[in-house]
Amino acid sequence: MKNRPCSCLIWLSALILLLFQGSDCISQGTELTVDDILRNLQSTFAEIEDYTVMLNVKSDIKQVRVPQMEVTAFFKQPDKLHLQSTGFAMLPREGMFINPNRFNREDFYMSILGKETLKDIETIKLELVHRNEKIKVRKLIIWVDPVRWISLKIDTVTWQGQSASVDFKYEKFQDRYWLPVKASAMMDLTGFKGFSRFHEMPDWENETESASNDRKGEITIQFYDYRINEGIPDFIFEQ
């Protein structure tokens, strides 16, 4: 009888310990790793075998004045991309056509920066830093929606210091595929000096803040007329 409170205490301690361990196990089970995130992004993306989409591109950068552009984009798994335009067109190279198949451990060091709420959606912030000099971007930060497994925002920094921040708006197509319908890319074209007139040397030395700001601006891309999984012949990508 004398030992009863003591044994109760031992049992209670054991129970508490078990509970703590159990909760730790549960929390460890729900915590996503980089590999989990990549796997989910890639498997969601893999559902789309190919697509064709029309893009309407508007540039609002003071030093990059181009008319409104129409581009047709063709994509086919795993990483075939072809862009076609009748006239001149320019589309942000990084971040515009997100292909999670490109995110691999051979090319990038990856880490989770934490969670961040973006447009009322709790996202996981994933950082990818190059580990391969062939990669054109120095760093990528991707805001991943952990429910739909899509990238809501992507920031890129190139080797030359130019940066882009692309925000996406998605819509569901064929009741199944989440694809972007609008992308707004904030660009900073540091280092872009323009095409000087033939006999006039631009005033590089006296770079003003306003001139620097003139190279920052927004490129807005509307995606429309999606054709998903209709099959695209390979020769399109050989052009």
């Binding site: 581009v71 862009l83 009748t86 001149f88 030359q160 074209l189 000096k193 323009g194």
Partner: peptide
């Protein structure tokens, strides 16, 4: 080959024929 074109090409997919009859006429 100009530095500015390289900056553009690093940041953008560039499409279209820029070296065309109008450009060379202006040149």
């Amino acid at each position: 080959s100009s530095a500015s074109y390289n900056v553009l090409e690093q940041n953008f997919h560039i499409m279209g024929n820029l070296l065309n009859g109008f450009f060379v006429s202006q040149l």
